[in-house]
Amino acid sequence: MVRLNLDRILFLLLLFVSTTIYSQKVNLIIFINDEIMTSSIGLEFHNKTSAGKYEYIYSPGREIDISTNDVFKENMILQFDAYSDKKDPTKLYNYKMLLKKELFHDTSFLIIRIYNLDVKKYKKIFCRSKESYVVDFHKSSLYINTSRCK
């Protein structure tokens, strides 16, 4: 009886460890103009070599299983539309950004901070950019900060 229970415990432990090794999930959190996006957003990940695209409905902290899609094996483009301005909630922004594949590896979370440069506060803080927004990335072992004006 004890031997049977020990075998079950070992089997479950082995199953858990193998699932953890082969399935990597990353919590994604998006901030726009220092406000967390709490509404659902349709995100689209794609790259040049994968056959298709990976469509994902964002909600704060929802996990992305990166082991189930080839898109996350190479650098990719993240594209989405969002309403982000409380002063003008009808203004739709279109975001398209390059994500390095390393951003999704060896971490349990990825925070993406977007600052729209048409907002006066952020236009003063961040140096000129050819884009209409700048992006910061933060994960458990890395923080990529956008250059700021001096």
Rank of each mutant, 00 (worst) to 15 (best):
L15G: 01
S147L: 13
R62Y: 06
K96L: 09
K87M: 12
T68L: 11
D88E: 08
R8N: 08
M37N: 09
G52A: 07
C149A: 04
K101P: 00
C149F: 09
I66R: 03
D136G: 00
S39H: 13
F109I: 05
E55P: 00
D88T: 14
F126A: 04
P89E: 00
M76Y: 01
L15W: 01
S23Q: 15
S141K: 10
Y122S: 05
C127L: 15
F31N: 06
I77M: 11
I64A: 02
S129K: 04
I36V: 13
M1W: 11
S18H: 03
D81H: 08
I112H: 01
Y93I: 02
P89I: 05
L10A: 07
Y143F: 15
S59G: 06
T19I: 05
I30G: 04
I57T: 15
L117F: 05
N27K: 15
H105I: 01
T19H: 14
V17W: 03
S67G: 13
L14Q: 08
F31K: 02
M37Q: 15
Y133M: 06
L4R: 14
K121L: 09
V17T: 13
C149I: 03
E131P: 00
T68H: 02
D106L: 09
K87R: 12
L13P: 00
A51I: 03
K86S: 07
S84R: 00
E44W: 01
K101S: 05
M76F: 04
S108E: 11
R113S: 12
L4C: 10
D81W: 07
Y56H: 11
L6D: 05
F45I: 02
Y93G: 01
E131D: 13
M1E: 14
F126G: 06
N116G: 07
D118C: 10
F137T: 04
N5A: 06
T90Q: 06
A82F: 04
L78N: 01
S108F: 15
S18E: 03
I21E: 03
L117A: 06
K139M: 04
R148Q: 12
N145A: 14
I64W: 02
F45M: 01
L12K: 13
L110A: 07
